[in-house]
Amino acid sequence: MSLVELGRYDRNLANILVGRLESEGIPAVAFDQDASIADGSWLLIPVRVMVDADDLEQARRIVGAA
C-alpha cells in the first residue's frame, strides 16, 4: 500500500470526504487535522486526504461527482 495525496481541504470537508470514500469501499485517511490546535490556527491549515495509489483515479471521480 502506497499512500498518495488526493487533495487538501478544510478540516470539516476532509472528514466528510473520508467518510464518503470509505462508504464507496476506498480506504482514506485525513492527515494533519490536529496540526497547530494548541495555538488556535487549526482552521487555517489544510488537511490532506490520502488514499492508496491504486484507488486514486476512482477517488478523484467520486470527489468530483460530490
Score class of each variant (00 low, 15 high):
S2Q: 15
S2D: 15
E5Y: 01
E5D: 15
G7S: 12
R8Q: 15
R8V: 14
Y9Q: 09
Y9L: 13
D10R: 04
D10G: 04
R11V: 15
R11I: 10
N12P: 00
N12F: 08
L13G: 00
L13A: 08
A14P: 03
A14K: 03
N15G: 05
N15Q: 09
L17K: 03
V18E: 08
V18H: 00
V18Y: 02
G19I: 12
G19Q: 10
L21I: 02
L21N: 04
S23P: 00
G25Y: 01
I26E: 07
I26V: 09
I26Y: 04
P27G: 05
P27E: 10
A28M: 04
V29A: 06
A30Y: 00
A30E: 12
D32P: 00
Q33I: 12
D34P: 00
S36R: 09
I37Q: 12
I37T: 13
A38N: 02
D39L: 10
D39T: 12
W42F: 08
L43A: 14
L43P: 00
L43I: 12
L44D: 09
I45A: 03
V47C: 05
V47H: 03
R48Q: 08
V49D: 13
V49E: 11
M50F: 01
M50D: 13
V51F: 05
V51A: 06
D52V: 02
D52R: 14
A53C: 02
D54T: 05
D54W: 02
D54R: 11
D54C: 01
L56G: 05
L56F: 14
E57P: 01
E57M: 04
E57V: 06
E57A: 13
Q58D: 04
A59R: 04
R60G: 02
R60M: 12
R61I: 10
R61G: 03
V63F: 04
G64L: 04
G64P: 00
G64N: 13
A65E: 15
A65I: 09
A66I: 04
A66Q: 06
